[in-house]
Computed example of a mutant assay.
Amino acid sequence: MALFLFLCLCSCTAGNQSIESTPERPYLMVLGVAQDAGYPQAGYQDEWEAIKLGQRQIQYTVSLGLVDPQNHKRYLFEATPDFKEQLQMMDKVSESQQYPFDGIFLTHAHIGHYTGLIHLGREVMGTKDIPVYTMPKMKSFLEQSGPWSQLVSLGNIDLQTMQDSTQVQLSPSISVMPFTVPHRDEYSETVGFKIQIAEKSIVFIPDIDKWNKWDVDIREVVKTNDLILIDASFYQDGELKGRDMSLIPHPFTRESMELFKDLSATDKDKVYFIHANHTNPLLDINSPEHEEVLKAGFHIARQEQIFRF
């Protein structure tokens, strides 16, 4: 399975993911970069004050928008607590045939990644048969747990089952492939996505446990794809005061940079850190840690950033 996944993640050609192209070409838009609770987080008055004083900016929960202008379609990756703000961001730049989205892809059942589905219910938008792509356990969770089950029974959403390492073809030139990754799977499995747009391949892994728990070498994933958006929940150990961070085993940003240190400059340039906890100094563009990542040759995903292909 590890070999199969590695082969599926491979891309024939690496290139500069930020090259501008014609408006008809598909593109990805970063709709949020923060961990599940966003920034500022509930109850942290210093963060709210920093926003008020203009010292920091609001950062929405991690999400991507995939836009296919030629077919007038768009897709959402993660339905977050910031769904309505992120939908508004998409409405300014794109359109869909099945409003609000022609499909929604979910990675797993942690609060920052699916709870935005509530906006599709009869209390809000009252949508009809919006395709929601899930893995089997995630599908069962939504079908059997209220209030999500009501979205299914009322036909607000139409659950589409995905299978590990199997492509979902969205158009002749666009496909999405889920692949399972190790994570705290209390209610569902967890996946990352490989998004294929023509000859370009994008890997999105917003949540994963430590890299050594995965049976795939993340360095090979970087080498064989064109753009990598990966989990940067925490910058380093000790970041959560008074909590045992081994119980929340995300890759520390510094661990990832150390793991990637021998990659070529071209490969490092593919890496974008995303899904930063409110405690992570990467969210502060003026922090030494933010500068450290950039100087090392990597990137930090920015809200409203667009990647054209």
Rank of each mutant, 00 (worst) to 15 (best):
187 Y>C: 01
200 K>L: 12
184 R>E: 10
206 P>R: 02
179 F>H: 09
183 H>R: 03
184 R>Q: 12
202 I>N: 04
182 P>L: 10
195 I>G: 09
192 G>A: 15
185 D>S: 13
206 P>T: 00
187 Y>L: 12
194 K>W: 01
183 H>Y: 15
177 M>K: 12
182 P>I: 04
190 T>Q: 15
197 I>A: 10
181 V>L: 13
183 H>F: 15
192 G>H: 04
186 E>Y: 14
206 P>V: 02
187 Y>E: 09
178 P>N: 04
180 T>N: 08
182 P>G: 02
192 G>D: 04
201 S>P: 06
183 H>W: 15
206 P>L: 09
183 H>I: 00
190 T>A: 14
187 Y>A: 01
199 E>G: 03
200 K>A: 03
205 I>C: 08
193 F>K: 04
194 K>E: 09
188 S>I: 06
203 V>F: 10
206 P>M: 03
203 V>N: 07
196 Q>M: 11
187 Y>V: 00
204 F>L: 07
192 G>E: 03
201 S>W: 06
203 V>G: 02
195 I>D: 02
183 H>D: 11
195 I>F: 05
205 I>N: 02
199 E>I: 03
185 D>R: 13
182 P>E: 04
185 D>I: 09
191 V>S: 11
202 I>S: 05
193 F>I: 02
184 R>I: 13
180 T>C: 10
182 P>H: 04
192 G>T: 00
196 Q>I: 02
187 Y>R: 12
198 A>S: 14
177 M>F: 10
203 V>Y: 06
197 I>M: 15
184 R>K: 13
201 S>C: 09
202 I>P: 07
202 I>Q: 01
204 F>Q: 02
199 E>W: 12
196 Q>G: 12
187 Y>M: 05
177 M>S: 12
197 I>V: 15
191 V>Q: 05
181 V>E: 05
206 P>G: 03
181 V>Q: 08
203 V>M: 05
200 K>P: 00
202 I>W: 11
178 P>V: 06
189 E>V: 01
201 S>V: 01
178 P>E: 03
181 V>H: 11
196 Q>N: 12
180 T>V: 13
190 T>W: 07
194 K>R: 14
198 A>Y: 15
204 F>Y: 15
200 K>S: 10
186 E>F: 14
187 Y>Q: 09
197 I>C: 10
198 A>L: 09
196 Q>C: 07
206 P>K: 06
185 D>F: 00
181 V>A: 07
190 T>H: 11
194 K>D: 00
178 P>T: 02
180 T>P: 02
177 M>L: 14
197 I>Q: 07
187 Y>P: 00
203 V>P: 08
193 F>Y: 15
184 R>H: 13
187 Y>D: 05
200 K>N: 08
180 T>D: 09
207 D>R: 06
184 R>D: 13
199 E>R: 14
186 E>I: 07
199 E>P: 00
200 K>I: 01
202 I>C: 08
196 Q>L: 07
189 E>W: 11
197 I>E: 07
183 H>Q: 08
204 F>C: 07
181 V>F: 11
181 V>K: 06
197 I>L: 14
197 I>D: 05
193 F>P: 04
183 H>K: 00
194 K>A: 11
197 I>P: 10
195 I>K: 09
192 G>Y: 04
183 H>M: 11
190 T>G: 05
193 F>S: 04
181 V>Y: 11
191 V>L: 05
184 R>Y: 08
204 F>R: 03
191 V>A: 12
187 Y>G: 00
203 V>E: 04
205 I>P: 05
191 V>I: 13
205 I>A: 04
